[in-house]
Amino acid sequence: MSVYTLEIDGREVGARPGETILAVAREHQIEIPTLCSLEGLSTVGACRLCLTEVEGASRLLPACTTAVAEGMRVRTQSERIARYRRGILELLFAERNHQCAVCVSNGHCDLQALATSLGMDHVRVPYRDPLLSVDASHERFALDHNRCVLCTRCVRVCDEIEGAHTWDVAGRGIGSWIVSDLADPWGESSSCTGCGKCVQVCPTGALFEKGKAIGEMTKRTAFVPMLQHMRGRRR
């Protein structure tokens, strides 16, 4: 098997053909911030937080979807990238309602952790504060649209791992929202198996288990690559 040699942040690293920049970076403990990406799920390149500078490319490329190439030179950190990442987080915080102090996922939230680690300490654009609904029709779980960042992890885990495809995105632009089945209440969904995988992969407090109080909702995502791994072996 051939091996590529490339440079990430000045470090020479080896990679297998077909791997993404993100996968190779993580193998070598080079941290690239991500939100929509989750190991074990397909990649969509939607959150734009993992944008990196690749020498010779006219645009910034998302590490999660860009395949490595021989001799590639990648920069995952720069003043410019840091500014963009903070700007994207500002937009995410301004888009809906992310009041950490009253959130079930406070302290266990990917969005919150990203803001902390990337130094996004205030939002300069006006908060939009839309009054969105909370779907609590399911017996064990609930979906608070106000906390959703539209990363589509729930959509993908339900489709790709559980095989139910209960979730999808409806509407467009700023009016996009996650729907179950044909925009039916979650509790009335005929396709939902109640497995709760979507709740576990949700990076924020948008999907949560009922009965959890502020800061009590912790999520476990390690099962996704495990399941993929087991299935791959069985095949």
């Binding site: 939607a46 994207i88 939009r128 539209l150 509407g171 700023i174 996009s176």
Partner: peptide
């Protein structure tokens, strides 16, 4: 509405 900068950025 897929990527954040376009979805929210154009609104702002």
């Amino acid at each position: 509405g897929k990527c954040v900068p376009c979805r929210v950025g154009t609104v702002e």
